[in-house]
Design a protein around this nucleic acid. Structure first.
Length: 199
DNA sequence: GTAGGGATACACT
DNA sequence: GTGTATCCCTACT
């Protein structure tokens, strides 16, 4: 079933369990009645106080407070002066953890995505965390938004147990690069390409 | 290979 | 309150 929305308790687990289970699922965004969506092909898990690469490593701040909230909400932040990144909050309320959505395979609303991205090639639309937020028009206004609603949701999509995926180090971080917390669909041409493989 | 961009966090006054 | 190093990146050369 591609239309069934993932329930809150789907997210109320370790990010290391949620991350691979998100592969093959479908992220939807509705903005002004227009729906854009994509199949999730690349994610990364971020833990809290035990993960030096996590925003929450040094405790609660105004920026990362959503990570400490209930599972099933979106944690969206701005980085490098240009880009938004979208995470889903996982685990128990009060303990920070999240899964970063890094890449999608475009599905619905492709003409809209091309216009927003000012790119015509399918592979340029959502093959990176900053690209997909631009294509789906996901920004600060959705920070803390529940992922069960009419603006932003994730549907069951393909059963992730049938998706072939691999684990690698996370991308764009300096700490904890030995941890294999990145999960990417093996045969997808829509994953981001930077620094794949063991550290 | 590298410029660009702006928010954030934290060390300092 | 101010200074500044850093950042889960992209688009261009």
């Amino acid at each position: 079933m591609t239309r069934k929305i993932l329930p809150r308790n789907f997210y109320a687990r370790s990010p290391l369990a949620v991350a691979p289970d998100l592969l093959g699922r479908i992220l939807f965004r509705r903005k002004n009645g227009v729906v854009t969506s994509g199949r999730i092909v690349e994610v990364e898990a971020y833990l809290g106080s035990k993960d030096p690469a996590s925003h929450a490593f040094r405790g609660l701040t105004p920026r990362n407070q959503v990570m400490f909230g209930p599972a099933g909400c979106a944690y969206i932040y701005f980085t490098y002066g240009n880009h938004f990144c979208m995470n889903v909050v996982t685990g128990k309320e009060g303990r920070a953890s999240a899964v970063l959505i890094r890449a999608l395979e475009p599905l619905d609303g492709i003409p809209t995505m091309k216009r927003r991205r000012r790119r015509s090639k399918l592979a340029d639309l959502t093959s990176g965390p900053g690209k997909l937020t631009q294509a789906l028009h996901i920004d600060r206004a959705l920070n803390g938004e529940i992922l069960i609603g009419n603006k932003l949701w994730i549907s069951a999509g393909r059963n992730s147990s049938r998706v072939r995926w691999e684990r690698t180090p996370r991308i764009g971080i300096r700490e904890a690069t030995d941890r294999l917390y990145r999960f990417a669909v093996s045969d997808s041409s829509f994953v981001s390409r930077r620094r794949v493989g063991p550290a």
